[in-house]
Amino acid sequence: MTLWFVPYLVAAWLFGWGLYGIVSSRNLVHLVLCLALLQTATYVLLMGIGWRAGGVAPVLVGTHPGQSVVDPIVQALMLTDIVVEATVMALLLAMAVQLYERLGTVDPACMRVLRG
């Protein structure tokens, strides 16, 4: 089976929808979730890159020599990436809550304190 390109398509799809959601969003919480969606594109991309045909999970206990395993480094990278992005998401959601308390709205179009 040559479906190696599927993860890349899915990554591009997620990125596109995330971006569209951010640009058109009328609600900050929705916007932050779209940003999270956009970030998941990198996870899929990294997973796709680490995939090996016939590979098993990279736990080497009990496997015989020569057994193909998927790349564990990209999984470590992905985990780090998730941690970093979770921080940013939490921060953004906290800001959205604060903004709602101050302005009574979460619509970015109604926040015009900065312009020009």
Binding site: L19, I22, V23, L31, P108, M111, R112
Partner: peptide, 10 residues
Amino acid sequence: HSGHVGDQVA
């Protein structure tokens, strides 16, 4: 320079 985050991402 509208200060709208959607515009900026666009």
